[in-house]
């Protein structure tokens, strides 16, 4: 079995967001970059499949040289090889999907895993777009995955609980928190990863889909009001304000 794991480098969740001088991108100063947390579940699942039934795991990222950190980490955690597609991995999900599809299409991957969304861009689009471009099955926001002989069974989160999706491999599966508990890299893994090289390829040309034209911070919220007095009085004042001022009820 051959597994591709697509990983995205994203700003850490605790990052304060500043807009760059161009007015439409993130100011990278002071941003700490991490592997998108949902991609960590995807990678962990691939490694568990490798440990369970045996698989070759290829880690891939689209980005600049900086994205090599994400791939080094993936190698340390247990990926067999790593590929950097040099291109804009932060922008348009449609373009990224085309780049990964162009790379993956003739390589015989049985399973492609990635996060259900890249933290920050929050598009939740690359996985299903990739599945369509490759003409394969998809299951998104997956919290449980079982593989059969050329088939998969995935439990995915929906509004009122979850649903079971069954389909044929190859497939694109996008991971959700709960799929597994990602491990930390061992010293042995980190040392072994140092001996591995990251294959660098130019990303295939891609057609633009959607682009950010303006990035702006949300408007400040107006100053609030505190309810005074004993708990009972505070509770009553709050509900009255919600009813009469805010007209929530």
């Amino acid at each position: 079995m051959k597994i591709l794991v697509a990983l995205k480098q994203v700003p850490d969740t605790e990052s304060r967001i500043k807009v760059a001088a161009d007015g439409r991108s993130l100011d990278p100063a002071d941003v700490k970059w991490i592997t998108s947390p949902y991609d960590e579940y995807a990678l962990e699942e691939a490694i568990r499949i490798k440990e369970g039934k045996g698989a070759e795991v290829v880690a891939l990222s689209v980005g600049s040289d900086a994205a090599k950190d994400v791939l080094k980490n993936a190698l340390a955690l247990g990926a067999d090889s790593a590929v950097l597609l040099k291109g804009d991995g932060q922008g348009d999900a449609y373009q990224v999907a085309q780049m990964i599809a162009a790379y993956a299409k003739d390589k015989g991957f049985d399973l492609i895993l990635c996060g259900n969304k890249g933290l920050g861009g929050d598009n939740a689009a690359m996985g299903p777009m990739l599945a369509e471009l490759l003409g394969v099955a998809q299951a998104n926001v997956v919290v449980k995955l079982e593989l059969g002989d050329g088939t998969f069974k995935a439990e995915r989160e929906i509004e009122v609980g979850s649903e079971i999706v069954e389909g044929a491999l190859p497939a694109v599966i996008t991971a959700q928190k709960g799929l597994n508990e990602p491990r930390y890299a061992s010293l042995k893994g980190i040392m072994a990863a140092k001996k591995k090289t990251i294959e660098e390829l130019e990303a295939a040309p891609a057609t633009a889909g959607a682009q950010v034209s303006v990035l702006a911070l949300p408007p400040e919220r107006p100053a609030g009001r505190r309810m005074e007095g004993e708990p009972a009085a505070q509770a009553l004042a709050l509900l009255q304000a919600l009813k009469d001022e805010a007209k929530v009820f």
Binding site: I17, G120, D122, T207, G209, A210, Q211, V212, S213, L215
Partner: peptide
């Protein structure tokens, strides 16, 4: 909303 609402992106289409 992007960055989970920490910023807003105006998005236009090329397609």
């Amino acid at each position: 909303p992007v960055y989970a609402g920490k910023a807003f992106a105006t998005t236009s289409f090329a397609s």
